[in-house]
């Protein structure tokens, strides 16, 4: 919970359904996280962790269900939603020709900030590498540049898709500390991972339990609805 008395944020999903390429990925995903809490997504490959993350980031529209922030539907005000989140996906976004500092500054500009926080690089352990072009970075360093976004500009919601891949033990510990600090300040974190990451009292969402059977596929179009909320009679005649 927020310790400084600010009103708690609530990030909530109800019966989310995801279809990709006419193929239902998952259905009936529900969760509710409030300020200070963390959500941990687990599940085998192909269970839709990344697709769910993209839905939470507003990049992909769900085929059904609702996603709300503080009770307001996220997809009705996507611009506001994007302002409140950081998304770290599989791609690090590193340009061979641009320096570490330039990357972090560019990402901060995209969010409307004039400058990234000055200690952002130090927080991810990259303080000595600010002027190094991307082409010289190792995989773990690239990932840390990407993670520097989180602390370069503030945002209440962190969406981290496999953040620890390519990170060593020390960098993972740093990330865990960042997440803990973010939560202590009233932030919300959603992490998708199949490795271990230490987060106290994280809510676990196992994607393996949300596969076939929960969704009804329209045979003609491949459009999918949540079986729980069916009732569109025109489509039931087929």
């Amino acid at each position: 919970m927020a310790t400084d008395g600010t009103p708690a944020n609530t990030f909530e999903a109800q019966h989310l359904v995801c279809v990709r390429g006419e193929r239902p990925v998952f259905g009936g995903v529900d969760f509710r996280v409030v300020s200070g809490q963390a959500l941990l997504l687990k599940g085998p490959n192909g269970s839709g962790k990344s697709s769910l993350m993209r839905i939470l980031a507003g990049l992909l529209s769900p085929a059904g269900g609702a996603l709300t922030w503080a009770g307001e539907p996220v997809f009705d005000a996507l611009g506001e939603h994007r302002q409140r989140l950081h998304y770290v996906g599989h791609l690090d976004g590193i340009k061979p020709a641009a320096t570490v500092a330039e990357h972090v500054a560019f990402w901060a500009h995209l969010r409307g900030a004039d400058q990234p926080e000055s200690d952002a690089l130090a927080k991810v352990g990259l303080e000595g590498l600010a002027d190094v072009p991307g082409r010289f970075l190792s995989a773990g360093q690239r990932r840390r540049v990407s993670l520097a976004r989180l602390v370069a500009t503030p945002a209440p919601l962190w969406l981290l898709d496999e953040p620890t891949v390519t990170l060593d033990i020390e960098a993972t510990a740093r990330l865990e500390a960042l997440i803990a600090a973010h939560r202590a300040a009233g932030g919300i974190v959603v992490v998708a991972t199949h490795t271990d990451i230490k987060m106290e009292d994280a809510t676990l969402l196992d994607m393996a339990g949300h596969r076939a059977g929960v969704v009804a596929v329209d045979e003609m179009t491949g459009s999918v609805r949540d079986a729980k909320t069916s009732g569109d009679e025109a489509w039931d005649q087929w």
Partner: peptide
């Protein structure tokens, strides 16, 4: 293409600018 493949395009899309 480059921004799409290295992940910058999604960051740009998540930014403030439409």
């Amino acid at each position: 293409r480059e921004d799409y493949e290295d992940g910058n395009l999604e960051q740009i899309a998540l930014g403030v600018l439409p």
